[in-house]
């Protein structure tokens, strides 16, 4: 696969240059006990990166859909609500949103928010605006004739959406939806700032302990690279499967 070749290509020169003595690969070498322990420590963050990203994307897809529907309604007020939400949420940087949800929301709401849920809420909130735009575009791309056929069968709004419009729209928005998932995996690294023990945070901690930033961060880069290549090929597989169904 092209992806593996690319990873090898990137790591090859780095590993070789390590032989010259400038790089101390033993810090993350699977050959030594200490290196193995460090590697496992770094990989341990994967669980939280995945949990964080997938929880956030599931929530943001639902919120995004709920926000998209008023955006395509015939009612001007509902459409305005959609615009305000999308524009405002999109305007706030994710990092700022994470900080505000973690430090601000508990005070405003009078509740305590764990690091994990603060991260999930911030990521989901930020992403939901993009999801809403994706769904709106997807739904609007469905041909008028499909709606007319549904109407002439007497289907109501909910049935029409559920059985006619959304199944077709979701198929069409799968590629951008997959991109959002990849984006989410990358953005989850920002949650390290509030102390979430995901991939990036673990790497930061190891750098502090070992003082080998280049080696540790190289491993971090590879971790994200492999993770995202796997996820995007999964999305592509799903797209292919869904388009095969129709043939």
């Amino acid at each position: 696969m092209g992806a593996t070749r690319l990873a090898l290509l990137l790591s090859g020169p780095l590993l070789l240059s390590g032989c010259s003595g400038n790089l101390k690969w033993y810090v993350v070498s699977p050959m030594t006990d200490a290196g193995r322990a460090n590697l496992l420590f770094l990989l341990g963050g994967l669980k939280y990166t995945l949990l964080l990203s997938f929880t956030a994307i599931v929530i943001s897809v639902f919120v995004g859909l709920l926000v998209a529907l008023p955006g395509i309604s015939g009612n001007r007020g509902l459409r305005a609500c959609n615009r305000v939400y999308v524009e405002c949420v999109r305007a706030v940087p994710i990092l700022v949103l994470i900080l505000w949800v973690y430090y601000g929301l508990p005070i405003v709401m009078g509740i305590s928010v764990s690091v994990f849920w603060a991260g999930v809420i911030a990521l989901a909130l930020s992403d939901s605006a993009f999801e809403a735009e994706i769904f709106r575009a997807g739904i609007q791309s469905i041909e008028r004739g499909q709606l007319e056929a549904a109407d002439s069968l007497g289907l109501g709004y909910v049935d029409r959406m559920r059985y006619v419009v959304l199944p077709q729209a979701i198929k069409r928005v799968l590629p951008p939806l997959g991109n959002q998932l990849v984006y989410m995996l990358k953005m989850s690294s920002l949650v390290s700032i509030i102390g979430m023990e995901e991939l990036t945070r673990r790497a930061n901690e190891l750098v502090t302990a070992e003082y080998r930033p280049l080696e540790v961060y190289t491993v971090l880069v590879l971790e994200y690279l492999v993770l995202i290549l796997i996820v995007s090929s999964g999305v592509r597989w799903m797209e292919r499967r869904m388009s095969d169904e129709e043939r």
Partner: peptide, 25 residues
């Protein structure tokens, strides 16, 4: 209503195209 462009639901089998209305409506 029968349309010029058929307007069948492309994501459903022929059978599901036919049963959707009777079941849901």
């Amino acid at each position: 209503m029968v349309f010029q462009q058929f307007n069948l639901f492309p994501h459903l089998t022929v059978l599901d195209n036919l049963t959707l209305g009777p079941m849901r409506v």
